[in-house]
Design a binder for these strands. Sequence first.
RNA 1: GACCCCAUCGUCUAGAGGCCUAGGACGUCACCCUUUCACGGUGAAGACGCGGGUUCGAAUCCCGCUGGGGUCGCCA
Length: 467
Amino acid sequence: MTVITRFAPSPTGYLHIGGARTALFNWLFARHNKGTYRLRIEDTDRQRSTDAAIAAIFEGLKWLGLDWDGEPVMQFARAARHAEIAHKLMAAGNAYHCYATPEELDEMRKTAMAEKRSPRYDGRWRDRDPKDAPPGVKPVVRLRAPQTGRTVIKDLVQGDVVFENEQMDDMVLLRADGTPTYMLSVVVDDHDMEITHIIRGDDHLTNAARQTQLYLTAGFKVPDFAHIPLIHGPDGAKLSKRHGALGVEAYRDMGYLPEAMRNYLLRLGWGHGDDEIISTVQAIDWFTLDNVGRSASRFDFTKLANLNGIYIRQSADADLATAVTPILAQKTGRALSDGEVGRLQAAMPGLKERAKTLIELAEGALFITATRPLQPDEAAKKLLEGPGRDMLARILAALRSVDDWTVAATEAAVRDLATKAGVKLGQVAQPLRAALTGRATSPPIFDVLVVLGREESLGRINDAATS
RNA sequence: GACCCCAUCGUCUAGAGGCCUAGGACGUCACCCUUUCACGGUGAAGACGCGGGUUCGAAUCCCGCUGGGGUCGCCA
């Protein structure tokens, strides 16, 4: 049997982190099994669905590298097909008209709650003669669900989960206006799309029971379910916006790499022994559902950042320079010159092991685009006062005599100066660093000298020495 | 409230009855490397929620409790 999975977000907002992981697991499972991974946009809520959200979902998935097979299915476009199934169920006596008003339903729930029972529809129109229908009331169509026995979900992650049928009420299939509900649409679409494995968030587990009732009465084959645990915020509660329930594009803007994101999301709720750094190729090879954990996990920005730092260090300098250039342009408010882009790439080996995000990488590279005279920060200012300034005059003289502008030659000159002055290298290097970068921290200082070039370096030192 | 799910260091996890003196990773702390900051290296502290069973033996199986979470819409 060929595996067919799907990711089915509703376009009522951005693609958030939980959805991204659900998509990742579906994608991984399909790729691992050489199956098909499809996308379905559940846009049946006409009030809340927006084109902007659909675009954001496409973009988010593309950024994450989770390519889907075939054209995305737009659920609302299939409403007639969904209704057709409901009408068939009606004709077969497996569904019925219900004329209960919203007020009545509200009343039922309140009473049930008060009596400490499960709040649900009491089935008052289930066996009632349609001739009793109150005039002027448009009915909904409800499934005539089994009232005895039990419904068992054979969940690939959670194991067998048993629901007593008497605990479930007759769900609405068609609204009073004739449009299909989510429950109907999902089941019909998954059936028509021949989905073999439904991998989705744990919050759908109870839905799976009701959907199974529908599959069974409609005579559809029940797919395999895998309900993966939810992602919580650092406090253990539902993921809030300030805790990470952001759209994936927000992570992109914060400077996270898609491959780091994939690795982090993969390790949240899934493990493969002691392995931590897992390439996507490796993940496809290793991914199975029985390695998925059963308990919810908390989102940890710190760990994501650590992983991102590792992936940044592994990235090619040219790729990083390309990624950072627009960020730097935005920070400086102007486009970068070719020379600056070249220097950026040249500085990348020293830059990239000091950054956990692309934003930090850009900040570290700011000394490259800075124009003379530099505006030193507070820590750098201290280094440029008093003895530091005196030292800079001697550094300037020493470096002016260097013609072969290389790491080795400049380092030799500066070390020689430190020895002659009888001070530690740091006492020379730190003022020099402040003069060249305007900061107290930077990549190795001789690398900086070479990246900036002789003329610019001597100019910056002169500025600091004479200011 | 009803139903359902879950429970190993602060966090993510390994652990399928003896390989567990409970392993790894992030974070934390120390030290080393070092021109700064990092990176890297070495080391330390740190967990099987509680109570009963079953068993020669339980983190692993069973029951209860406690705690956390999810769902109860003519939303998805």
